[in-house]
Design a protein around this nucleic acid. Structure first.
Lengths: 226, 226
DNA sequence: TCAAAAGTGTTTTAACTACACCCATGG
DNA sequence: CCATGGGTGTAGTTAAAACACTTTTGA
C-alpha cells in the first residue's frame, strides 16, 4: 500500500481532501463539522477530511471521508472540487496539501454521528461557524462563495430539497445560501421562466393557503469532476 | 530537504504543478509548450511543470518551473490555480497529482528556449495545440475555459498588452481568447463605459487612420491565490 | 484619389428591480 | 371571521445585440 515508484526528483507531500458539506436545516444553510479527536487541534471543530489513498480518485476519497468520519445516511447530490490549499505552513505535521471539495447533502440528511478519529459530528450555521482547525475557516468561506456562484447557473438549490417541493421552500433555499432576502414575485417569475420545474398536481397542507407542489422537469446532476 | 514528519496514515503522493501560460502573438492566443526530454512521453509536447518542493508555495513552484523549463524574459501578469488533476492513472510513474495553473505573459514575451530537462520550448495556437503528453490536452482545455471566464469580470485582456494600446488591439485580444468576432461599436461602448481606460493622448501611426492610445486607469492584478 | 483602418448612434430586445393587494385554508 | 402563508401583474430601468456609414491618414 505504501510502495511507490515516484521518480527521484519527486518530493512526496501529504495529499488530503477536505469537504465542506452543506444541507438545509430549519431554513438555514448548515455545514457539517467534526470534532477532532487527535492532535493537532484535538477537540476543535473542523471540516471532515483526510488523506487520499494511492489507488483512489480524489472525489472517491472525499466520499469515503464523509462516510467514515460522519455517519450521513444519504449520498451527496453534488460533489465538486473547488480549490487546492497548499500553503507550506498550513499543517504543523508537515507539508500537507488539501484538495477542497464542496458537497450538497439532500433533504433528510439529519442525524450525523462521529466516526473514525472524530469525537463527534454536527451541523453548524454555515455563515456563522465556530472556530475551526487549520485553515478550514478560509476553506469554508471559499466553499460558500462557490456554492453561491453555482446557485445561479446550475439549478443547485433543487439538490437541497426532496423530490417535490413548493416555491416558497425553494426560495428559502436560495435565501439561505445567498444570505439575503429575495422578492417573492421576481423569484417565481425567474424560476418558472427557466422551465425546469413541473407542477406536481398535489398540494401540501400547512397553516395558511396550501402551496402548489413542483418537481424538477430536467436533468440530473453528476458527482465527479469539473 | 527530503525528511518529512508526515503522520503514518498519510500516503505520500507526488505533488506537481503544471502551467498553461498564454500570450498573444500575431493576433492569436498562444500557449507555451515544452518538448519533454525524459520518459515518459519523451519528445512529446507538454505544458511546463514539475514537482513542488517541500518548502515552496504552490504558486512559487509554478513560477520556478516556468523559469527553469522555459526561458521567458518577463514576469507573468497573472498566475492562478484553477483545478487539480489527480486521476489515479494520469501518470505512469505512480500517483502524481497536479495542481494546474493558468498564467498570462505580457506583451513582449516572445523568445522562449528550453531549459532543465526539456529539449525545447515554443508557442503554439492555444485553440489548436499539437498532441500533448499525459492529460495535458484536458488541462489546457480547462485553462482556456477559465481564461474566458476571467476575461469578463477581471479586465484580464489588458494583461496581454503593453502599457499603452489601442482599442482595436484590445478587441483583438478579446477575440483571440473567445475565439470569435465581436462587434466593434458594442465592444467600444462596453469597455469605455467600465471607466477603467484612460486616453493616453498620443496616437500610433500605422497604415490607415491612427488610433487613439489608451492606458489602464485602475488597479493592478495580483499573482497568487484565489 | 484610393486603400486601409478607426471611429461613431440608434433601435430593439431581454432581463432585472421595485412595489401592494387578493386568495385559500385551518382553527 | 381571522390569522397565516400562498399567489399574482405592471411599470421603469438597465444591459446587450443588431446594424452601416463617415473620418483620418499614408501611399
Amino acid at each position: 500500500m505504501s510502495t511507490l515508484t515516484l521518480p527521484p526528483q519527486a518530493t512526496p507531500a501529504g495529499l488530503a481532501v477536505d469537504i465542506a458539506a452543506f444541507a438545509m436545516h430549519q431554513g438555514e444553510l448548515q455545514v457539517l463539522l467534526v470534532e477532532r479527536g487527535t492532535l493537532p487541534h484535538a477537540r476543535t471543530w473542523a471540516l471532515p477530511g483526510g488523506f487520499v489513498q494511492l489507488n483512489e480518485e480524489l472525489h472517491e476519497a472525499a466520499l469515503r471521508e464523509l462516510r467514515t468520519e460522519t455517519t450521513v445516511e444519504l449520498e451527496p447530490r453534488l460533489l465538486e472540487q473547488f480549490y487546492t490549499f497548499g500553503a507550506v505552513d498550513r499543517d504543523p505535521r508537515g507539508r500537507i496539501v488539501s484538495v477542497a471539495h464542496m458537497a450538497v447533502l439532500p433533504h433528510g440528511t439529519v442525524s450525523v454521528t462521529g466516526g473514525g478519529n472524530t469525537l463527534g459530528a454536527g451541523w453548524f450555521p454555515a455563515h456563522q461557524p465556530p472556530p475551526l482547525a487549520f485553515d478550514h475557516a478560509e476553506i469554508l468561506a471559499h466553499a460558500i462563495e462557490r456554492l453561491q456562484v453555482r446557485l445561479e447557473y446550475a439549478n443547485l438549490a433543487l439538490e437541497f430539497l426532496p423530490e417535490t417541493f413548493t416555491l416558497p421552500e425553494l426560495q428559502g433555499v436560495h435565501e439561505a445560501i445567498l444570505n439575503r432576502k429575495l422578492d417573492k414575485r421576481n423569484f417565481r417569475k425567474r424560476l418558472l421562466a427557466q422551465g425546469v420545474l413541473a407542477t406536481s398536481g398535489e398540494r401540501r397542507s400547512g397553516v395558511g393557503r396550501p402551496a402548489q407542489l413542483y418537481r424538477r422537469a430536467g436533468r440530473l446532476r453528476l458527482v465527479g469532476n469539473l
